[in-house]
Design a protein around this nucleic acid. Structure first.
Lengths: 201, 201
DNA sequence: CATTATAATGACTTAATAGTCATAATTCAA
DNA sequence: TTGAATTATGACTATTAAGTCATTATAATG
């Protein structure tokens, strides 16, 4: 019984290591088996198919993260402190598992279906855009409109992310056909968050 | 010559439509040819390979977006107004091309390599997490710590996005092994942006 | 030790799809 | 008009990788 559990965990951890090394797109069941030092057929004794395996890899990682965050946040009182702890614990988790998250994040960011060369040009284009925004933020810092201690490059990156995240949020909530009013409202919402944040005063 | 350009554009737009309809992962060269009403070999006369085609689809879309944003922003003066216009124009572009962006965004968010069932559970897990954070923000609104007009669900989504984006930013800039000091600094930076934004006062 | 049950194997089958190329259709130039 | 140049075709090849299953090895039982 523990033996079975061990092999299950062995396949999970081998997959995880492989993902860290070669990414999702290059992951094959043959490689998983080889990495775990077992036959391919054995993998199918513990996981229904490749999709099932990947799903289990992701969910086990998520559960671990969620548990540690809830534990940490449970010790805090007040929303501000809870959030502060949450951010801190989340970031810590990410960096403690940075090889895994690097792949998760960069695979997403780089648009996984592209090959190396195209990923590079994709990233270069995005950089041109964030550099452009960073220039605007820098000028705002110099003119005194914006705080003078900002990392303007990173702030630009954040803004692009907020814009994108806002749209994803809408799509996921069935808000697909926006009126121009809703577009204006969204613009104000993001602008407000980026300029003033969510805190009172 | 215009004929060649027409066919080139035909393949591009057909690919784009296909991506909107079936997503990146299901796109095949056979389907592209069929959609364009030409033979597969013809596609290879205008694009080196599949990767080249996808790259051109993405870059042409990006160039259009970038151009319109630069034009719009160029009419504004002052960083605040420029940024406001930029956000607005970017969002407009996204929604005018919403079928395309829906696929781009959701493919990224849903982790493209998973099949439908696993994508659903992946999304459910993320929702559990954002709901959890939303609850904290809601309590902060009720206690008067946070602004009372927030969409706490969306704000939670934004926070998760900021955390993730911060990490991606670091990775892309070679900051892979963070000291605990840097982790604290990152925590403060994100917390500050989310609570107070980048604006002075 | 013998027999049954469980676990593991990896060669093989199947399916999908990227990319090719000999042939055909069309366009162009003299 | 005609022959060369260009463009288009789609059947075919090659590759990759998921998933299967008859066979073998190992463990449990009495």
């Amino acid at each position: 019984m523990t033996e079975i559990q061990d092999k299950y965990e062995l396949i999970l951890s081998s997959s995880r290591k492989l993902i860290e090394e070669i990414g999702f797109s290059a992951l094959t069941m043959d490689k998983v088996a080889q990495k775990a030092g077992i036959a391919k057929g054995t993998v199918y004794l513990y996981f229904k198919d490749k999709d099932d395996l990947l799903e289990k890899v992701l969910s086990s990682g998520f559960e671990k993260m969620f548990e540690r965050i809830k534990t940490r946040v449970g010790n805090e009182s007040g929303a501000f402190n809870k959030l502060k702890s949450l951010i801190n614990e989340n970031i810590k988790h990410i960096y403690e598992n940075r090889y895994f998250f690097k792949t998760i994040f960069l695979d997403e960011v780089n648009v996984v279906f592209l090959k190396k060369k195209s990923k590079e040009s994709y990233n270069l284009r995005r950089k041109r855009y964030t550099d452009y925004i960073a220039g605007i933020i820098k000028s705002g810092m110099e003119s005194g409109e914006f705080k003078n201690d900002l990392n303007y490059s990173k702030s630009a990156y954040m803004l692009v992310s907020l814009i994108k995240t806002g749209a994803i949020y809408n799509f996921l909530n069935g808000m697909f056909d926006l009126t121009s009013d809703m577009i204006e409202k969204d613009t104000e919402e993001i602008l407000n968050l980026f300029m003033r944040g969510i805190s009172v005063k």
